[in-house]
């Protein structure tokens, strides 16, 4: 697959995801025009939220119904245009602003800053990058971010001590499901959760398996060869999260794209690496410390191609 085609496919997937996200959010009643009456806002200690509220963007968006309708429709229309590959540079930037605004507004009125939209938030830059080499480098950076997100979750558990405590999972399940267990004492899911709570060893096995999966992502910093496995583990982790913890992180799963990219992207990345190695060799062969790389602009070459 050619690089330009690989980039187009990746962008297309993200735009598709954004359309599906819009539909999912609409069904759940989470679009801006559906959140107009929400009574509370909670900015927590997030400085960016403070800035966005301070600039009145949230006030305008959640207290002006027709503006909210316009922003919601804008999201859908621009994403559909993006899918068709017809977006201009300004419409992509407009979309980024609309999405960031949504991210802040939703989390503020939810009064709980969820991590579920972070996947789309971090992938937004890929939609506006034009030069193929810059796209590939940004994609590689995002892959490292996903590795960081997953492995740091395991490291937090190690550093705060939760990883080493037997019964931790059983206790977490009690807190996570208390409302459901009380509301539906005879439900099959209730029996399943109570089984895990009451059988601490089994709950511990699940806990340590999840922790091991999180820490396994550290290996991705050393090699890309296991990316396929990491991608499946990434998805498996969030399926388990949903089944056992009732935490729906399906939106975060867009990040799986970094483990299953179209082949042309890593091919180009490897070319860049080999290019660096080749110049190192030439430098050492010439024995000239003042050796400089040829000033060929690979970005331009690729773009022209």
């Amino acid at each position: 697959m050619k690089l330009t085609e690989a980039i187009r496919t990746t962008k297309h997937t993200i735009w598709w995801g954004l359309v599906l996200l819009w539909v999912a959010r609409y069904v759940q009643g989470f679009l801006l025009h559906q959140l107009q009456d929400a009574p509370f806002v909670d900015v927590e200690a997030d400085n960016f939220f403070w800035l966005w509220h301070g600039l009145y963007f949230v006030q305008w968006s959640i207290h002006n119904y027709w503006l909210a309708v316009g922003l919601d429709i804008g999201w859908l229309v621009l994403a559909i245009i993006g899918m068709a590959g017809k977006n201009r540079w300004w419409s992509k930037f407009l979309f980024v602003l609309i999405f960031i605004n949504y991210f802040v507004c939703y989390n503020s009125v939810a009064t709980h800053h969820e991590h579920t939209l972070i996947g789309f938030l971090f992938l937004l830059p890929l939609l506006v990058i034009k030069k193929p080499t810059n796209f590939v480098l940004s994609f590689a950076s995002l892959r490292y971010y996903v590795l960081f997100a997953m492995s740091s979750a395991g490291i937090w558990k190690l550093s705060r001590g939760g990883a080493f405590v037997s019964g931790q999972m059983s206790e977490i399940l009690k807190r996570q499901h208390i409302d459901y267990l009380i509301s539906y004492p005879d439900n099959t899911y209730t029996h399943f959760i109570q089984f895990l709570i009451n059988n601490i060893q089994i709950a511990d096995i699940i806990w340590w398996t999840a922790l091991s999966i999180e820490l396994f992502f550290l290996i991705g910093f050393l090699t890309k060869r296991l990316d396929g496995l990491l991608g499946y583990l990434f998805l498996l982790f969030f399926v388990g999260d949903y089944l056992i913890m009732d935490i729906n992180f399906i939106e975060f799963c867009i990040f799986a794209i970094v483990f299953f990219p179209p082949p042309g992207i890593w091919k180009r990345y490897d070319e860049l690496r080999h290019d660096e190695l080749r110049h190192d060799e030439l430098r050492s062969e010439s024995g000239d410390s003042s050796y400089e790389k040829p000033s060929e602009d690979l970005n331009t070459d690729i773009a022209q191609a």
Binding site: L121, A153, G161, G162, E171
Partner: peptide, 16 residues
């Protein structure tokens, strides 16, 4: 603490 885009993934890491 968190400030967008610097997020911490420390959920459920404290001893329960």
């Amino acid at each position: 603490v968190e400030t967008t885009p610097f997020f911490n993934y420390g959920m459920y890491s404290e001893v329960a």
